[in-house]
């Protein structure tokens, strides 16, 4: 039986809907603005006052400049390399750690777990980490420094372990009777069943690698090894005209604002394109992590 809704009830719904529409505008408009501005003629853009909804005098000149810029291209290649290799190694080792932690108790299991959990709350700090990686391990200016120090993230290991624990015991028992060893059980039996949590964790790692800039800023000295985010920092934050133009003489300085907007779009569109498809995995991961963390 549905009761007749009161006036106050309906007023609440209307105000709430307006509020939510406002949220949509606030969340999406900055990104829309960047898109529209990147497709606008920069002289018109500079003179325009008011809320920009559509491109002013549509032009793709800024994008032509961005794609001609060799820094952006090498940055993209480096980032893709790091995301692919890094994520594969991350998932491989995180899966192993999660598998071992999902087994029945064995001597030392608890100590191993505590050892990993401690790193969620404490770390050596920026400087000791730098001295370790740069001076003691000699990883300075080596792209491996973007991968090895973040090989296994405990939070992700916990998410994967939760996924593995949900798999019924009967599955690996029958494999064990057939004489399979632990390595085979993990990669032939468990991993195929735990595809969803593995996807969640892989996405987490991939996005972290994609977004990371600070580590590279600290350790990588060769411009040829810069990941995309570091090139972006030079262009967007440091206003480095050289990296903006890719060494080409800066006669195009006038359109530099549009170039910035186009650079933002070029770096963000790939993520925004895959985002609607992978969003639900992220949400899933966020919830497992929250419950277990």
């Amino acid at each position: 039986m549905k009761r007749k809704r009161s006036f106050g009830d309906r007023a609440f719904d209307i105000i709430n809907t307006i509020f939510m529409l406002l949220v949509i505008v606030i969340m999406a408009y900055p990104i829309w603005y960047v898109l529209v501005a990147s497709l606008s003629d920069s002289n018109y853009l500079a003179a325009y006052r008011g809320v920009l909804l559509w491109p002013l005098k549509f032009t793709t000149a800024a994008y032509t400049m961005v794609f001609k810029n060799p820094n952006i291209v090498t940055g993209y290649c480096n980032t893709i390399l790091i995301v692919v290799v890094g994520t594969l190694l991350n998932v491989f080792f995180t899966l192993i750690a999660a598998y071992v932690m999902s087994r029945k108790p064995f001597p030392g299991k608890k100590i191993f777990m505590i050892m990993m959990v401690i790193t969620m709350y404490f770390n050596g700090g920026i400087i000791p980490r730098y001295i370790l990686n740069n001076n003691w391990l000699g990883l300075g200016n080596n792209r491996l420094v973007l991968i090895l120090p973040v090989l296994v993230v405990t939070y992700n290991m916990v998410i994967l372990r939760t996924g593995l624990e949900a798999i019924p015991d009967s599955l690996d028992e029958s494999a064990r009777i057939d004489g399979a060893n632990e390595f085979q059980i993990l990669f032939k039996i468990m991993a195929p069943v735990a595809k969803a949590p593995i996807a969640v964790v892989a996405l987490y790692y991939a996005v972290t690698h994609w977004n990371s800039w600070f580590t590279a800023a600290v350790y990588i000295r060769d411009r040829a090894k810069y990941p995309l985010q570091l090139i972006l920092r030079d262009i967007l934050i440091n206003n480095d005209v050289n990296s903006m133009m890719g060494g080409e003489e800066g006669s195009m300085l006038a359109i530099s604002e549009s170039i910035k907007y186009a650079t933002i779009m070029v770096a963000t569109v790939p993520i925004l394109c895959i985002y609607p498809f992978v969003q639900k995995y992220f949400v899933k991961g966020a919830m497992i992590g929250a419950v277990k963390g």
Binding site: V23, M27, Q229, L232, I235, L236, T268, V283
Partner: peptide
């Protein structure tokens, strides 16, 4: 879905947007 969007924009890009 729209409210999650900013979470997927990298920090460097967000700061670049703030700056402009």
């Amino acid at each position: 879905t729209v409210s999650y969007l900013p979470h997927f924009v990298s920090l460097v890009v967000i700061c670049g947007m703030i700056k402009v």
